[in-house]
Structure formats: structure tokens, C-alpha cells
Amino acid sequence: MKYLFALAALVGSAFAQSAFIEAPAPGTDVTPGSNVTVTVWKPDSLTGSTDIAIVLSLQSCVGIAPAGTCDGFDASQDLGTILHYGPFDPEVEPPISLGFHENYTVTIPSSTPKGAAALLLTHLVLVGLGPYPLLDISNITLNVV
């Protein structure tokens, strides 16, 4: 039983270190060649961590998923076109620390086909006293018009 609790605590602390795309909202219409502000958000946690880097990328789902969706798309296998990569140094969200965020302005490639596209966030963080590396990938679906 104690091993199950330890495993649950480890999984919980790793999840608390994950970052997410807060904006734009899923389903947002974007135009090839336009700039989009991406807000990356990370919840506050009691577990110590050091954020290392993020990668923002865009993968068209046209022809690899059902029309109008990115269902079944495995983001860990193909990041698509890299829009931004570099350090992740989020600021505290005022007025109290519910989490941290950082904004990035990226350009939707002019060659992106119309239809659904996955905006991917790849986040590398060192967790705990060890520390151990955690690589998490999340995504939202945008509509390229």
C-alpha cells in the first residue's frame, strides 16, 4: 500500500510541474502568415522545480486525422514546424501566486494548409531534489482559415 501511495505522490508531483497552453483558446481561428500570442501557464506547486526550456510548434492535422480535428494525432511523434524554442522563465500571476505564465509571439507559417492544426508545447523541467528530468508535451487544436 505504501508503494502505491509513493507512486501516486510521484505522479502527482510530476503533473504539478507540467506547463499548458492557456491562450489562444482551443478552436481559435488563425490565418497563415499572422502573428499569434501564445500564453504558457504553469500551476504553482509545493514540489521544487527548475524550468529549463520550451518548444512551441505547429503540426497540420490535414490528412493525418479526421477532417476538422486532430483526433488520434500523437504529438510526441511529430512536432511539426518549430515556431519558437528557448528558455522558459515564467512570471508569477498577480495578485497571488496561483501559477506562472509567459507570453510568446509566434508566426503561423504561410504554407500551413487550411483545416485543423495542433499547436504543441514541449516543456523540459527538472523536478525535486534529485533532480529528475521531466519532458511533457501538450497541445491544443487551432483552425487554420
Score class of each variant (00 low, 15 high):
103 N>P: 02
80 G>I: 09
44 D>T: 07
95 P>R: 11
42 K>Y: 09
41 W>Y: 10
101 H>P: 14
86 G>Q: 07
93 E>D: 14
99 G>F: 00
36 V>I: 02
38 V>N: 09
33 G>E: 06
67 A>K: 14
77 Q>K: 10
35 N>Q: 12
99 G>S: 07
104 Y>C: 12
52 I>R: 01
78 D>K: 13
102 E>Y: 01
39 T>K: 04
58 L>I: 01
66 P>G: 03
104 Y>N: 14
67 A>R: 15
62 V>N: 08
69 T>R: 06
61 C>I: 01
59 Q>W: 00
79 L>D: 13
39 T>P: 07
78 D>F: 09
75 A>K: 14
106 V>T: 08
54 I>G: 03
34 S>V: 10
70 C>E: 15
99 G>A: 02
29 D>N: 11
64 I>W: 00
108 I>H: 12
81 T>E: 04
69 T>M: 06
90 P>D: 11
44 D>R: 02
90 P>W: 14
62 V>G: 09
29 D>F: 15
39 T>V: 02
46 L>H: 15
76 S>T: 14
33 G>V: 01
30 V>A: 07
74 D>T: 11
68 G>P: 03
67 A>M: 14
67 A>F: 15
39 T>E: 10
90 P>G: 05
54 I>Q: 06
59 Q>G: 10
36 V>A: 00
32 P>W: 06
89 D>V: 11
100 F>E: 15
48 G>L: 03
101 H>E: 12
82 I>V: 07
105 T>M: 06
65 A>R: 05
31 T>H: 13
76 S>V: 14
106 V>P: 09
105 T>A: 11
95 P>G: 12
51 D>Y: 12
96 I>T: 15
48 G>V: 07
76 S>A: 13
56 L>K: 07
56 L>M: 02
36 V>G: 00
41 W>F: 09
80 G>R: 04
82 I>A: 10
107 T>R: 13
61 C>N: 03
98 L>H: 13
